[in-house]
Nucleic acid binder design. Structure first.
Length: 511
RNA sequence: GCACCCGUAGCUCAGUCGGUAGAGCAGCUGACUCUUAAUCAGCGGGCCGAAGGUUCGAAUCCUUCCGGGUGCACCA
């Protein structure tokens, strides 16, 4: 390639560059670089890379300062994305960012060499490069790589979001999460922390001899929760299939099988609307402990969450937008009945139906005539009590109708032996003394379907194999579930589930 | 599903009473060998989310649709 040729090509580019399409501009720049013999999507150099952070940490005045001869200074190879350029003519400052952070580059024409300097000048913000050189400290005191060698690794064809304001449009941030991650360090931090939370949950349970298992996500019968499933079709078997709404019924089979401590930490799918608190696929932790019950699982949950919080956040005090949550142990445990009387009046359960509705009215709760006492109480609880439960509290012995599939309390068949863990005004985790009586379980499943006999149930609505597993004998067990996305939201003080899911679901854009 | 709010350059945002589009960053050209939101001079960039309507005239007013946000409902 002759100089004349490249000069002519550059002049052509100048004319075309007058257009407004920045991608077109970059495509032409790419061709220009290729015409100069520069590989625009090249292989990484066979060198040992140093991260930006390592480079900072390895800088010492003695080795790289003024006193040391230039050729004696150690050379570093780094790779990353150019995020800024400050052009001074015969020298250029630039910012390089890798996973560990940012470091400044200094390209000087008479050090880098004329050809390489010219190539460097052609690079765009967003390009990915490998660079090499010694470290020095600028007059303003910033540790900087003095470039002696560069290689373009990846040409970027798109303009990055603005350096100062970044990407703020929520829709764009979620549709193009990679741009969000490039632009917003707080977002990078949230997802690093999320990964740490998940890692700590596993470490905690593994340490307690719980066994992580994987059960079907593709199920012929979706069970274990009351929710609308996603439906799909298995061509080879010519049968409809469902994405699981919960792993519960399979995990319980494993208890029958003799695995005494199991957990699964993975995705569930529910065919529901999107909201600040709902994504159709969400990450669920379910834990089952044989020979345990509601209380043993309560202890486990308390220890799990405090351990995770302490290890990830380094504190048990969480600041959210409006609250400060203190996770210090021990956590309060209160019977549902007592909690209700504490907040709604000691006489709440002695009131007549009419009086109860009138009092609900004072909380601006509207009741419909067909609502039962339990439903009215629960409505008032959800609207007026739960949002104000900031520090963790286990609510125990819930009314049986609210939790149809749990074991009844020995001392009071009107209530079930379960807990709801609430903090930051949100339900975080339910736990149960699991029902292991196959006869009662069958009865409850039928009731849930609103029928009296198996014959009345539509074919395939009852998971007979699950009931069979119970008939072989499932040990008494405690079980617990945590919505991991919501736990992460709470721990990180974020108020939308989409902020803790890398690729939240959004509507397809048509046209 | 219902209600309210939002959609203007690659990004962040102005745009008054309806008179036909502006800035900063990014980009391009030039100057500058320690800058750091570099600076200075100049230049280009728009189907104003889409389609209808009202009007002499619409980014602006009306209707429908698309997408997003928030609240409610559904839902753990």
């Amino acid at each position: 390639m002759t100089d004349e040729h490249t000069r002519q090509e550059s002049e052509e580019n100048q004319d075309l560059d007058a257009g407004g399409d920045l991608r077109e501009q970059r495509l032409r720049k790419l061709e220009d670089l290729q015409a100069r013999g520069v590989e625009v999507f090249s292989d990484p150099p066979d060198k040992t890379f140093t991260s930006a952070q390592q480079a900072y940490e390895s800088f010492t005045e003695a080795e790289t300062g003024e006193e040391t001869e230039e050729e004696d200074k150690p050379r570093f190879t780094l790779a990353g994305r150019l995020t800024a350029k400050r052009d001074m003519g015969k020298s250029v400052f630039a910012d390089l960012r890798d996973q560990s952070g940012r470091i400044q580059l200094y390209a000087k024409k008479n050090i880098l060499g004329e050809d390489a300097f010219e190539i460097f000048n052609l690079l765009d913000i967003g390009d990915i490069v490998a660079v090499e050189g010694p470290l020095f400290k600028t007059r303003k005191g910033e540790i900087t790589v003095r470039l002696e060698w560069i290689r373009l690794l990846t040409k970027s064809l798109r303009t990055l979001p603005e350096k100062w304001h970044g990407l703020t449009d929520v829709e764009q941030r979620h549709r193009h999460r990679y741009l969000d991650l490039i632009s917003n360090s707080s977002v990078r931090e949230i997802f690093r922390k999320r990964t740490e939370v998940v890692r700590e949950i596993r470490a905690f349970l593994d340490d307690k001899d719980f066994m992580e298992v994987e059960t079907p996500m593709l199920q012929p019968l979706p069970g274990g929760a009351a929710a609308e499933p996603f439906e799909t079709y298995y061509a080879a078997l010519r049968s409809p299939m469902f994405l699981r709404i919960a792993p519960e019924l399979y995990l319980k089979r494993l208890l029958t099988g003799g695995f005494e401590r199991v957990y699964e930490l993975n995705r569930n799918f529910r065919n529901e609307g999107l909201s600040r608190h709902h994504n159709p696929e969400f990450t669920m932790l379910e834990v089952y402990q044989a020979y345990g019950d509601c209380r043993s699982v309560m202890d486990l949950t308390e220890e799990l969450i405090t351990t995770v919080a302490q290890n990830v956040l380094g504190t048990l005090c969480i600041s959210t937008e409006e609250n400060t949550v203190d996770l210090s142990r021990p956590w309060e445990r209160v019977r549902y009945h007592d909690l209700i009387r504490r907040h709604l009046g000691e006489d709440w359960f002695d009131l007549t139906d009419q009086q109860r509705r009138e009092r609900a009215q004072t909380w601006e709760i509207t009741t419909s005539p067909e609502m039962t006492e339990v439903e009215i109480t629960q409505e008032v609880y959800e609207k007026t009590i739960e949002p104000n439960l900031i520090n963790p509290v286990f609510i125990t012995e819930l009314p049986a109708p609210l939790v149809p599939l749990a074991k009844k309390c020995r001392n009071n068949p009107e209530t079930v032996d379960v807990f709801e863990l609430v903090f930051n005004g949100q339900e975080i985790a339910p736990g149960y003394s699991e029902l292991n009586d196959p006869l009662e379980q069958r009865q409850r499943l039928l009731e849930q379907l609103g029928v009296e006999t198996v014959e009345q149930a539509e074919e395939g609505q009852i998971d007979e194999d699950f009931l069979t597993a119970l008939e072989y004998g499932m040990p008494p067990a405690g079980g617990m579930g945590i919505g991991v996305d919501r736990l992460v939201m709470t721990l990180l003080g974020v108020d939308s589930i989409r902020e803790v899911i890398l690729f939240p679901h959004l509507r397809q854009k048509s046209g």
